[in-house]
């Protein structure tokens, strides 16, 4: 049976993700506001927004099918599972064998397909436009992400995310050029997948260039709250996966439950630094034209392929 320590670390991880994901979003927003010489909305603003949205009634279009109403829950469920299998604090996760890196990419794809279908459900122009753009980003970002994860898999001889991180974190320090290249590709993909500048701007509404906001234009009330929360979870999961793959130090291994006590502050510190860097990227870049996005992602995809090739050549 599952040992108690694994159960605890699993539960702790999920709770941490659900609780702290909006905080990360708030932190990034705050850093960005500081960097852009604006006054920031306060660190807890995302929680207030979620609370407000949950209290409001949901307005659903008359022409909506049930897909529209279940999609937010499915997206939320997918992101919760992603956070459960990503080793944020510990690699001792009972749920980790259920889904490896390929299934992780599949989970992101599942969420993407449902949110796109929901956007097409109403039949407004913006919804379909958003769905089309989201799928456009997805079909390039997914294979790029998979290749990034594969270059880590090749090094560690495992596709299980927990095992990859376990191997990377608890071995003598070594420089992996392939992982460095993969890290660049991962950054590109993470920016695109989380609707960040330079691919999309999460702060704007109703511009002809919006992607994520166009998808969820018809949502309101608790449905919108769930989607926003899921978006925050996605950012959290991506940040954690990136940190775990490229800066794995401090994550507790199997059989060391006490290391979790250290792991939490380490993770928060790493996330805080990551948030600042994200805000910095968003500030010094301009949003690119929509048809530059495939090029941007194709670059990420090819970089990831190069990472694999470098691994085959150098064996590292």
């Amino acid at each position: 049976m599952i040992p108690l320590s694994g159960f605890v670390s699993q539960l702790l991880e999920i709770i941490l993700a659900l609780a702290f994901a909006p905080l990360l979003t708030g932190w990034v927003n705050q850093c960005r506001a500081w960097l852009q010489n604006r006054s920031a909305p306060g660190l807890l603003q995302p929680y207030r927004a979620l609370h407000k949205l949950f209290n409001k009634e949901s307005v659903v279009a008359e022409s909506a099918s049930p897909i529209f109403r279940i999609a937010p829950y499915i997206v939320f469920g997918c992101m919760a599972l992603v956070c459960a299998i990503a080793p944020t604090l510990s690699t001792d996760l009972p749920l980790a064998p259920a889904a490896d890196t390929i299934a992780l990419v599949g989970l992101f794809a599942l969420a993407r397909v449902f949110i796109s279908l929901a956007a097409m459900d109403i039949g407004t122009s913006f919804g379909t436009l958003g769905a089309r753009r989201e799928m456009l980003i997805g079909f390039l970002a997914e294979p790029a992400l998979l290749m990034v994860l594969f270059s880590a898999s090749l090094i560690t001889q495992s596709t299980s995310l927990a095992n990859i991180v376990e191997t990377l974190a608890h071995q003598p320090f070594a420089i992996y050029p392939s992982l460095a290249v993969a890290g660049v590709a991962f950054t590109f993909v993470a920016l695109a997948e989380n609707a960040r500048v330079p691919v999309d701007n999460p702060a704007t509404h109703l511009e002809l260039t919006m992607i994520h906001e166009a998808l969820i234009l018809e949502y309101s009330g608790r449905h919108l709250a769930l989607i926003e929360w899921a978006a925050a979870l996605k950012l959290f999961a991506y940040s954690c996966i990136g940190l775990a793959l490229f800066f794995p130090w401090g994550i507790a291994g199997a059989g060391t439950p006490l290391a979790m006590i250290v792991a939490i502050p380490v993770l928060l510190a790493k996330l805080a630094i990551g948030g600042v860097l994200l805000a910095l990227i968003e500030t010094i870049n301009a949003k690119m034209r929509l048809f530059r996005v495939p090029e941007f992602l194709a670059t990420a995809f090819l970089l990831a392929v190069i990472a694999l090739l470098v691994h085959v050549l150098l064996g590292a």
Binding site: F54, V60, A61, I122, G123, R222
Partner: peptide, 11 residues
């Protein structure tokens, strides 16, 4: 919270 839903024409 609640499970209230209002049906309206799409925006």
């Amino acid at each position: 919270y609640h499970g209230r839903v209002r049906f309206a024409p799409p925006w």
